[in-house]
């Protein structure tokens, strides 16, 4: 294919456009992923962490309620236990509906089972029974079950916290990946422009200057248009056209002289 000036300029700009277009597309893809990840981070892990915190708070309130029952404060103790129980169940429901991590379902099952065992211990009457004021029963049975339930809830929270930490460092990497094509493209475009400028000077400007100088030399007395254009493009065509024109003028002058 004949490489004309038009084709050379067109091809150069197409290459530049292709590079910038791909860089732009990559950045857009990465930024979209980034925005999804930020949303996911809040949706997936933060919700479960908050639910775990609420469950722990509910468990501690239940523990206080049990202590009140042990002291014989039936009304106040049961009121605290009932409200803490509904708070725990509502937080548990949130965590159960937000299973996003691998094996998270196993943690939920563990919490459910531990809580059922714990609840069954304080659901039955305490006030006016042999359990009232029985510190050994509290220490050996109730507190042990409370600690076990709290431990599995903490495990669920740790799972989501470590996943959140991992996601955050991934986000840092992804944000870098989203920015890098832009930075590389800017540098590459600068280098590209410098090389393009060199080629334009070398292959367009210099031959035109050379041609102009050859025409000037002809005007000043050279008997032939002397230029050294080796390319096969529009500038060569221009040189041939000027050469033909001068040849024709020469021929006309010779005819007139004759």
């Amino acid at each position: 294919m004949k490489k004309t000036l038009k084709l050379k300029i067109f091809a150069s700009f197409m290459l530049l456009i292709a590079m910038l277009a791909v860089a732009g597309t990559i950045s857009i893809v990465e930024f979209r992923w980034l925005s999804k990840s930020v949303h996911g981070l809040i949706q997936d892990n933060y919700k479960s962490i908050e639910a775990s915190k609420t469950m722990i708070e509910a468990l501690e309130r239940e523990d206080s309620g049990i202590l009140l029952l042990l002291l014989g404060e039936w009304e106040e103790g049961r009121e605290i236990l009932n409200s803490a129980d509904s708070l725990f169940l509502s937080a548990f429901e949130t965590a159960n509906n937000n299973l996003t991590e691998k094996n998270e379902v196993d943690y939920i099952k563990k919490i459910e089972s531990a809580y059922q065992t714990y609840k069954s211990s304080w659901e039955r009457p305490i006030v006016d029974t042999d359990k009232q004021g029985n510190i050994s029963w509290y220490k050996d049975d109730i507190h042990k079950k409370f600690a076990e339930t709290k431990f599995v809830v903490n495990e669920l929270m740790s799972l989501n916290q470590s996943s959140m930490y991992q996601e955050t460092s991934d986000l840092k990497d992804r944000s870098k990946r989203a920015i890098m094509p832009g930075i590389v493209s800017i540098i590459a475009a600068l280098v590209f422009s410098l090389i393009l400028n060199f080629f334009i000077t070398r292959y367009f400007v210099n031959p035109i200057s050379e041609l102009a100088e050859a025409v000037n030399n002809y005007r000043d007395g050279d008997n032939k248009l002397r230029s050294n254009i080796t390319s096969d493009d529009e500038i060569k065509k221009l040189e041939l056209a000027i050469s033909g024109l001068l040849q024709r003028i020469d021929n006309n002058n010779n005819t007139i002289r004759k």
Binding site: A18, V22, A23, E30, D173, F199, T230, S231
Partner: peptide, 26 residues
């Protein structure tokens, strides 16, 4: 993998800068 786009863009840069001089230099 996470390196897909980085490798694609790098190969594209090499391709563009490799082909570019061939347009001009005889």
């Amino acid at each position: 993998e996470t390196s897909t786009l980085a490798l694609l863009f790098s190969s594209l840069i090499c391709g563009i800068f490799g082909i570019f001089p061939l347009i001009f230099v005889e």
